[in-house]
Write a protein that binds this DNA or RNA. Structure first.
Lengths: 319, 319
DNA sequence: GCGTCTTGTGACAACGTTGTCAGCCCCGCG
DNA sequence: CGCGGGGCTGACAACGTTGTCACAAGACGC
């Protein structure tokens, strides 16, 4: 900027005014400055600008589990689009479900002075963000509640969705119902399991521990578990990776066991067998979180909110 | 930092040394400083640090078409992971195939003083980046070549892949072959079309313009085009959205026309009908671009490279 | 012709941090 | 006892920008 000022024969401050579109500059000078900027290829340093003016950095951070996962990719897409509507750039980072990594990344984002954070929590304690939040950093938790911190939260109706799905299975006369889940360490899995449990208990089905399978981490494991549990009326899969594995095994084996899966997925309507998904709108989930965040950034200082998004049942697959 | 210094009864500089882990500080003083940092909840401002030290910002930018698209999501995942390995944070931005938006976003990223850029080009002229590149900003173009700028580029063997696929169709005795593509305005489409054309011309098949359908933007259009072209031996779909639409129509209609699609996609092995995909490893594509970028950031000043990734044919779908 | 206001411009300090360098103290050596 | 050197510490300036304020020049009213 100093070089531009010298070249245009004006002061530093006048260049600053021109760069910031201040109207208080004579057109003739402004032209000289613009010419000098073009000749020297000057680009204003947004970092220095934000530092001096103490204003917002026009940057937000999104911390998710894994960008490559289509669910999180959809979320990232919506958040990126909302950010762009607010002329804001987006940092994207993946925790890979590692709380240590989560904390490191969040601290790093804070060090970059982001204007706000959207976080899909991996860990249980986000108290390390408290001092930032107290200084006015808006944080929105997405998909799962954060720990040790009062902040806006946007969740799915995991419990109600699974309950409704299992109730439909029960209404269809099914009694021997297996539940496959990843890990009860994950909030969404606990809630979904609780929903299934509520429906089964309400129907008077006795608890059979052999029908609840935890630790189903991937489609291959899901297929193996389904193969092993062959005398079952219906399989409830608490996420879509599990659903896909179960589906593959049921297609291989044949038969008419029912399949209920949490999360819809791409091309589910083309799967070679009917099944039911507990679906929701991931875009709406992300949109709410992003809107909440930018409302906070714009100065909304009402009490922290928790929003819960409904789910609904959809029949999928070719019949 | 001033407050921390006062509280710990040391100078500003000593706090700076402690924060940066300089060994030249007496343990006793360092402890006092650490205590003050904890009490005040001090977090070093990375922006100011980068400004003063003139060093790298430990930030890179990734500009893709659309994060929500699984192909780009995979790329973003690999780039994010590589960035993390280099303790670098990642800006992700979507051009939505709009060259104007692309330029705005890239300029904005430069204003944030990113250490490097990975760009999936939307526009044809990236000359506006020249002054940055001349000042040492590394830029890597991914999936398509950039325009008006000499820079590292990582591409797919679009032409060779399609040629090999069509040659296989020809070897299978197919002669009436339709080609469905999005827009010849897109580099990858032009290359893939050229590959198909090379194979067909080499086999002496006369050019039939009614069998080359441009403007197939989505699965629904693809399905409609396939429905219309019912007297065809084989359909060549130049991206996976087109493949999915064609597949749906072929499943509906039945028959034994061959289907060849560029790009593999998730769950393709579960599709209710056999077909062939021209596949490649999108992670490898991204990994190469990211490695190239970080090598440049680390000081690699060899001539700009263009790397071309091979493709291969895979049989998909249930038989 | 004088004071006052408006408009445009620039000098200077400051944002939060780090590089440079000077200075202090203490040790060991001749 | 004096001197050189190493180990720590701090004062100060600087990174690139903008806020504050002062000032100059012209317009206006009386």
């Amino acid at each position: 900027m100093v070089d531009v000022a010298k070249r245009a024969g004006v002061s530093l401050k006048t260049v600053s005014r021109v760069v910031n579109g201040s109207p208080q500059v004579q057109p003739e000078l402004a032209d000289r400055v613009h010419a000098a900027i073009a000749e020297l290829g000057f680009r204003r340093n947004h970092l220095a600008s934000a530092l001096r003016s103490g204003q917002l950095t026009a940057t937000v951070g999104l911390l998710i589990e894994e960008i490559a996962n289509p669910f999180y990719a959809t979320i990232a897409g919506v958040v990126a689009e909302t950010a762009r509507e607010h002329d804001t750039l987006l940092f994207t980072a993946s925790s890979e479900e590692d709380p240590v990594r989560e904390e490191l990344l969040l601290r790093d984002l804070c060090a970059r002075r982001v204007d706000g954070l959207i976080v899909v929590p991996a860990g249980y304690d986000h108290g390390f963000l408290r001092s930032e939040v107290e200084r006015g950093l808006p944080v929105v938790f997405l998909d799962r509640p954060g720990g040790g911190l009062v902040a806006d939260t946007v969740l799915l109706d995991n419990r109600g969705g699974t309950r409704a799905g299992v109730e439909r299975l029960l209404a269809g006369g099914h009694r021997r119902i297996a539940v496959l889940l990843d890990s009860v360490g994950v909030y969404t899995m606990r809630e979904r399991l609780a929903g299934a449990q509520e429906a089964l208990a309400a129907a008077g089905i006795p608890y059979d521990p052999t029908l609840v399978r935890e630790g189903v981490k991937d489609p291959a494991t899901a297929a193996a578990v389904v193969a092993e549990l062959s005398d079952v009326d219906a399989y409830v899969c608490l996420n879509n990776r599990i659903t896909v594995g179960a589906l593959q095994e049921l297609v291989r084996r044949g038969g008419d066991a029912e399949l209920l899966g949490f999360d819809d997925f791409e091309l589910s309507y083309l799967m070679p067998r009917p099944f039911t998904v507990i679906a929701y709108d991931p875009k709406e989930l992300a949109r709410r979180a992003a809107d909440l965040l930018f409302a906070r950034i714009a100065g909304d200082e009402t009490w922290p909110r928790t929003e819960v998004l409904p789910t609904h049942l959809i029949e999928r697959g070719l019949r």
